[in-house]
Structures are given as structure tokens and as C-alpha cells.
Design a protein around this nucleic acid. Structure first.
Lengths: 243, 243
DNA sequence: CAGTGGTCTAGACCACATC
DNA sequence: ATGTGGTCTAGACCACTGG
């Protein structure tokens, strides 16, 4: 049955928002299936084609994943098979995929400075947690980075719990804190290594490094992570495709 | 009328390939409309819905642009209104959009080295044209780059003709040589400025620069440009969104 | 086998642009 | 008024998955 049109937006976008709200509110967990198209069509009293268009949009934004014959699943960062490091754009020059190892250097609590507060939509002085780590590809340290997280979303995050978790850190955030990264914006610059980062990455002080500033977002464009990384681009590079 | 299914691929992908071939062969020029969905449906004897799905794919790949009420148009790099610099990811830190000025330093013909030949799918020694230029944002020189082009595609490219053209260089390639850039892959690194680039960009020798290597492609994944740029990230950065 | 997403059709109507 | 793309429906059938 049709809803003739008591609205401005097309029906399928309204349905999309309803399903998105369900995702946001945790009606279905990451990795689990959402209701079938037929069921959603019945529930919202629209045709299956309209539900399909709605889910097309969500799938394009990678909030859900379709699997023919099985169903539509809530996207997750924890699945080995598909893409455990969807947001990692650093690649080896020779194309090998080396094992990625994280060395956690520090976890501390603090207060947000004005800049971090602005980028994370907090107030200056709000509680934050800052992780510092080095990522090594194979044996070689390649990335030295800080992650700044809003304290109220990551209560109970400790060094031990973080180290206990294997796999991508976004998988950890997802399973342990229910925070799902959905989108990110990055700004890249070239900078000279200072003493600390030079030591961490095994390059001489003053060596050129690729600086990446990332703000990552959950549903509804809400920023939930600020990351500043320094990358030694000796045998690795940042890869990007432009369409 | 339906074609029951004498094939492996879905019908709409077959239609998509037919339309894409038309684009590739220049049946319709950049900026001009392709035939209406109804006409394509009649021509290929499929339903309009199937044509729509085919065009959806082409629109997602930005080969065409839909405009409601007007038609579907061949994408172009020459239109001021939409996005004259679709592939330029360098932005000012403060978000201003300064006028972009190109200073062409050199145009010369030469032979492809092994590396350039590999990336451009040529044979080493094949004729290439190399442009060298500086891009300035406002008054400030920001990018110093080389463009290496296959000679056989850009016959008659001269310094004078290049300078005569205003707007994006991809617009120039499109209108003057019929070469349309459709996609590109980039690799970014941090490097130290050598004497030449330091002079061109107004930074001290050894200053960290963002090095961007781009291979740009036309239809069918055919590489047609190799670009190596050095970016002074004093008050500018490389912007990227991750989905 | 039944259930899921994927394709395809035919037709109605809406929103927008142009004449 | 006409032509374009955009939405929506109802129903048929295909392709794939799993019990």
C-alpha cells in the first residue's frame, strides 16, 4: 500500500533513516543480519522495491553489507575476511602485505585542549583518553600515532584491555564500547621528524614524515576519534583512488 | 520485451557496457546529453528500468551526470559550475578557496624511461611529452610537478597552445585532444626538497614536501598520464575522505 | 526445499525544465 | 503542454545459500 506523499523527502529516504536509526540504537549487532527486505516492506507498509532502494543507500555508505542468498548484515570492523583495516591507506611499495603489529606505548587520561575539543565537538577541558602507539609492518616501525577519544564514550578503557585485544583497534572499539566508526576525514602534510618521533620510527631527526590528521565519525556525523599519525615513507606510501 | 537470458552477466551491465562503448567512441561529446532513457530502452529493447540501472552505474563512476528534467550528460572537466578540479585534493588549511594559477615552466619531448613506460603501458623509448609547471594558490607557489604524457595521444601539444588554455588542464586535454580522464590512482610520500624544487616552491633545501605520484586513466583503465608532484604543505594540505 | 537478495518488466505518477 | 529524470508499485522469475 502506498503512502501517497505526506512529505518532502522520497519514501525510500525515509525508510533509510528509519533503518539507520535502528542501526544507531543497536537493534541489530554488528555482523548480524537485519530483517529481510520482505519483512521491512511489510513492517513499514511499502513495496519491497522501495526497501531495496533504501538499503542500496546504506550499502553504498557501507553501513550494511548485502550477501546474496543470506541476507543483509550490519557492517563490522571485526571480520577478517572482508576488510579488517578498511580505513588504513598505508601500503608497502612492493605490494606485499606484511603482518601489521601494534605496539602500545601509553594510555593516559587527560583534558581536551581547545583544538581537540573543537574537532571532537567537546568542550575544552572535557575528559579524554589518549593512546600512543607504533604500528610496524613486519619488523619495520612505520606509523607513530596518538589517538584522542572522548572519555565518556570509552569508560573503562585500560592499557591491559587494549593490549588483550587482537585485530584492528576499530574492532576493539566496536565490540568493547559499542562505538562504530563509519566515516573519516583526513588531512595530510609533510613534516620533519622531531626527536621523539625519530626515535620511535628509527629515522634521523629532521627526516621527512607524512603527517596524517584523522577525525573519525560514527552514525550521524558525530566525531568520536581524533588521530594524529606520523608515517615513515621509506618503503611504504599512502594510497588513494580518485573517481 | 525481455531477452530471456542468453548470457552470464545481468542485462543492465550489458547495456552499461554498450553505453560506455558509445562514450568511448565519442558518439556523444563531453557536456552533451546522451539519448533519453526511453530512447535507449527502445533502441536496446529492454525496459526503462533496466536502462536506469545501467546509467546508475555509469553515474556512480562519474562517466555521466544526471540532471532531472533535462537529461543525462557526458561528464566533462570543462564545466565551471560543477567541479573543474575534481581530482585536485589540495586545500587551504583555513578553507578559503584561493584562485589557482598555473605557471608553465617547460614543455619538452623525450623518450619514456623504463619506469614511466611501465606505469603508462608503453615500451621504454616510446615518445612522451613532459610538462613542468608550478601551481600557485593566490600568490603562493604550492605544487611543483611534472606531467608525462604518451606522445601518440597528444600530437601537436605545444607550450603556446597549453598556455592559451585557461581552466583545468584536464579540460584542455579533453577539448583539444579528446582524452578524458576518468579515474586516477595516487601514492603519497614525504620527501626532502632538492635544490630545484626548493627554488620553485620558495622553501629551504631539505624542507619536507609531500610527494604525489599519480597515474590517471581514461575509459577501460587505460593509463594516459603520469604525474609527479611536490607539494609545500605550509598552509595547505591533502584532503581525503574515507568511507 | 524454502528463504534471501538480484534482476526485469510494465505502468502509474511526481518533480523539474523548457518552450 | 511536453519531455526529461525520479519515485513507487506489484508481480514474476533468477541466483545463491543452507537445512
Amino acid at each position: 500500500m502506498a503512502h501517497p506523499s505526506p512529505s518532502f523527502q522520497p519514501l525510500y529516504l525515509q525508510i533509510k533513516m528509519l533503518v539507520e536509526k535502528g542501526l544507531e540504537e543497536g537493534d541489530w549487532q554488528p555482523g548480524e543480519p537485519i530483517p529481510s527486505e520482505a519483512e521491512l516492506a511489510a513492517r513499514y507498509e511499502v513495496s519491497q522495491g522501495t526497501v531495496r532502494k533504501a538499503i542500496d543507500v546504506l550499502a553504498a555508505a557501507k553501513l550494511v553489507v548485502r550477501r546474496q542468498g543470506k541476507g543483509t548484515f550490519v557492517a563490522t570492523h571485526t571480520e577478517e575476511k572482508t576488510a579488517p583495516f578498511r580505513f588504513l591507506h598505508i601500503r608497502a611499495d612492493d605490494g606485499r602485505d606484511e603482518t601489521l603489529v601494534s605496539h602500545l606505548l601509553d594510555v593516559r587520561r587527560g583534558k581536551a585542549g581547545v583544538e581537540a575539543a573543537r574537532l571532537l565537538a567537546l568542550k575544552a577541558g572535557d575528559a579524554v583518553i589518549v593512546l600512543t602507539r607504533v604500528l610496524a609492518f613486519g619488523e619495520e616501525p612505520v606509523i607513530f600515532e596518538d589517538l584522542t577519544l572522548p572519555g565518556f564514550l570509552f569508560r573503562g578503557l585500560t592499557r591491559a584491555r587494549t593490549e588483550a585485544h587482537s585485530g584492528s583497534i576499530y574492532g576493539f572499539f566496536e565490540t568493547e564500547f559499542g562505538v562504530r566508526m563509519v566515516k573519516a576525514k583526513e588531512r595530510l602534510r609533510a613534516v620533519a621528524a622531531d626527536a621523539e618521533s625519530a626515535r620511535a620510527l628509527g629515522v634521523p631527526a629532521g627526516h621527512p614524515l607524512l603527517a596524517i590528521e584523522r577525525v573519525a565519525y560514527t552514525y550521524g556525523e558525530r566525531p568520536v576519534e581524533l588521530r594524529r599519525g606520523l608515517v615513515a615513507t621509506r618503503r611504504h606510501h599512502y594510497y588513494n583512488e580518485l573517481g
